[in-house]
Design a protein around this nucleic acid. Structure first.
Length: 274
DNA sequence: CTGGGGAAGGGGCCC
DNA sequence: GGGGCCCCTTCCCCA
């Protein structure tokens, strides 16, 4: 079973190692890998089969998620006026501070946005309130009634903005067709190695695989002249030369050259012991 | 058991 | 929008 189907574990997605120093260590390395013409001459890129993903049944566009605002439902708790429901009637209570579900469209770290401030000023002006219509926050369409806006959001705008593209081979969903196409390649595996027949989802994966046959190792360690076929493997190797390991156990402060080694260490019971 | 190398996959960015 | 590439991550294997 290809690893692509394994569930990805995000132990700490926010902790990203800084590899910026790699360039200084490998200053002589060209950032663009020059693939030997030999590879392309002897092993031309495979013809990608007709993309099944483009067939009409490949995906199901506009899959309305069940989180859409129910028609004629009361305002969901935590739904702010910025969600398209003007608070001119004074019915909308501010979302509870602990509610994190309403952060979907909030890119601002400030608890009070400019739009909220403008709304506050409007609230102080009754004439402005009267002139206010029920406006969709997604497409700016205005409606004279709240129910009209709610129906619009349920049947059109929310469905459009939250449409998903479902893989017909598995239950994964993607927000864009491009992402779905890329994913489906992990099922169809259109790039086949002509030497061993192993199939890959992307051409560059095949190129990397072909290096295992040719022995080409374009990435050299500047410290020990050891060569690698994969840049990421060189990067991991460079950590072995470093006195300061990037991955540290937060309990015992022991450091590791790889995150996977830290994970092993943590799973072995260090964190439990402390 | 630990550390390291090899191989591979997915997401994201750029052109 | 698609391809190429990079980065990060994971798994397997071995010393």
């Amino acid at each position: 079973m290809p690893r692509s189907f394994l569930v990805k574990k995000h132990f700490n997605a926010s902790k990203k190692p800084n590899y910026s120093e790699l360039d200084t260590h490998t200053g002589s390395l060209d950032r663009r890998v020059i693939i030997s013409p030999y590879l392309y001459e002897s092993y031309p890129m495979p013809v990608i089969p007709q993309p099944e993903i483009l067939s009409s049944g490949a995906y199901s566009p506009i899959t309305v998620w069940t989180t859409a605002v129910p028609f004629h439902s009361p305002l969901p708790n935590g739904l702010s006026p910025l969600s398209g429901y003007p608070s001119s009637l004074g019915r909308v209570s501010p979302p509870p501070p602990s509610d994190t579900s309403s952060k979907d469209h909030s890119g601002s770290e400030s608890p009070i946005s400019d739009e909220e401030e403008r709304l506050q000023s409007k609230l102080s002006d009754p004439h402005a309130i009267e002139a206010e219509k029920f406006q969709c926050n997604l497409c700016s369409k205005t409606y004279s009634t709240f129910s009209g806006l709610a129906k619009h959001k349920q049947l059109h705008c929310d469905a459009q903005s939250r449409k998903s593209f479902s893989c017909k081979y598995c239950d994964k969903e993607y927000v864009s067709l491009g992402a779905l196409k890329m994913h489906i390649r992990t099922h169809t595996l259109p790039c086949v190695c002509k030497i061993c027949g192993k199939a890959f989802s992307r051409p560059w994966l095949l190129q990397g695989h072909i290096r295992t046959h040719t022995g080409e190792k374009p990435f050299s360690c500047p410290h020990c002249n050891r060569a690698f076929a994969d840049r990421s493997n060189l990067r991991a190797h460079l950590q072995t030369h470093s006195d300061v390991k990037k991955y540290q156990c937060k309990n015992c402060s022991k450091t590791f050259s790889r995150m996977s080694l830290l994970h092993k260490h943590e799973e072995s019971g260090c964190c439990v012991a402390h």
